[in-house]
Amino acid sequence: MRVAIDHRTRYRFTEPQARVIQLLRLTPLDSIDQTVVNWHIGVDCDARLREARDGFGNRVTMLYCEGPLDSIEIAVEGEVLTAGEAGVVRGTVEPLPPEVYVRATDRTGVSRAMREFAGEGGDDRLARLHQINLALHHRFSCVEEHHDRGLTAEQAFAHDAVSPRDLAHMLVALARSEAIPARYVTGYLAGDEGAHAPHAWVEAHVDGLGWVAFDPCRGISADERHVRVAVALDAAGAAPVAGMRIGDGDERLDVEVQAEAMGAGE
C-alpha cells in the first residue's frame, strides 16, 4: 500500500522565545515491510537540522531555532510503501536484545485489577498476546488524544475511553508482567477518517517469529495500514516531538495528521 502522510506540529508562545531545541522522531526507517519513497521535514523559521540515531535505533532529527520566536511550525510530508504479514515485523534495525523490553517503566506498571482482567493464559505466547489485545479492544473505547496527559497504564485502566497511547501502555504492561518482551511503537494509521494525531501500538517478541505487532485500538495485528516510525520502552522514549525552549510565558501546541492510503504499492 502507498501511504501519503502530512503531519504538522505548531507551537505558539505567549512571550517571544530566545531559543527552541526539539528532538524529532518523525522519520520512518526502511525495512522489509516498508519503504520510504520520499520524506521531508520543513520548518517555517531559520533552523539547523542534524540527523542521528537514538539508542533504540530510531532515526532522530535535532532541530535548533534561534529567537526571538512567537511561533514555530514543523511540517512533515512524505510517502511510504507498506506491506504486512500477520503483524510480523521484518528487517528492522535492532541494536538491543529483546530482554531489554521486559523492564517495566513508571508508566507500564500493572495493578491487581489489570491482572484480574487479563486472567490466565497458556504456554502459547502468540495466542496469549492475541487474547489480551482483543480483550483490551473490547473493554475500552479508543479516542484520539493530541496531548500526552502522562497517564500510567494503571491510571488509564480506570477509564472507559482511552487513547491509542494508553491502550499501548496497557498491552505493554500486561505482556511484560508475563515476562514477554514488549515495546511501545509510534507511527501513522492510514485510512482512519477520524485520525488527526500520530497513532500508537505495540510490538511483542515471540520465539520463532521475532517481533509481532499488535494494535489494541483495532483489536488485530498491525498491518499495511500502519507506518512504523519509532519504538521505545514507553511513550516518553518514542514521542514524535520533544524538547525545550528558553523564554518566559506559556505555549500552545496544535497537531494535525493526515495519513491517506493511495492504493496498492508499485
Rank of each mutant, 00 (worst) to 15 (best):
E77Q: 14
E77P: 02
E77F: 10
G78L: 10
E79M: 13
E79R: 12
E79Y: 05
E79L: 06
V80R: 01
V80G: 02
L81C: 07
T82Y: 04
T82D: 10
A83Q: 10
A83V: 04
A83E: 10
G84I: 03
G84F: 02
G84A: 15
E85P: 02
E85K: 14
E85L: 13
A86E: 13
A86R: 07
A86F: 08
G87T: 03
G87L: 01
G87Y: 04
V88P: 02
V89H: 11
V89W: 13
V89E: 13
R90H: 12
R90T: 12
G91P: 15
G91Y: 14
T92A: 04
T92H: 01
T92P: 00
V93R: 05
V93Q: 01
E94D: 07
E94P: 01
E94W: 03
E94V: 05
P95G: 04
L96A: 07
L96K: 07
P97H: 06
P97S: 10
P97I: 05
P98D: 12
P98R: 03
E99K: 08
V100L: 15
V100H: 15
V100Y: 15
Y101I: 08
Y101R: 06
V102P: 00
V102F: 05
R103W: 03
R103P: 00
R103D: 05
R103G: 00
A104Y: 01
A104L: 06
T105F: 11
T105N: 09
R107G: 05
T108D: 09
G109D: 11
G109H: 09
G109P: 03
V110Q: 02
V110G: 00
S111M: 08
S111L: 08
R112I: 06
A113D: 12
A113E: 13
M114H: 05
M114Y: 07
R115N: 03
R115S: 06
R115C: 02
E116P: 00
F117I: 02
A118F: 00
G119A: 11
E120V: 10
E120T: 14
G121C: 11
G121S: 11
G121D: 04
G122D: 13
G122W: 09
G122V: 12
G122Y: 09
D123V: 03
D123T: 06
D124H: 12
D124E: 13
R125S: 07
R125E: 08
R125G: 00
L126I: 06
A127E: 14
A127W: 09
A127T: 13
A127Y: 10
A127S: 14
R128N: 06
R128H: 10
L129E: 00
H130L: 07
Q131W: 05
Q131F: 07
I132T: 10
I132M: 15
I132Y: 07
N133R: 01
L134R: 14
A135N: 05
A135K: 13
L136S: 02
L136C: 04
L136V: 04
L136P: 00
L136K: 05
L136G: 02
L136W: 00
H137K: 12
H137I: 06
H137F: 14
H138K: 08
R139G: 10
C142W: 07
C142L: 11
V143M: 08
V143D: 06
V143K: 11
E144W: 15
E144Y: 14
E145V: 07
E145Y: 04
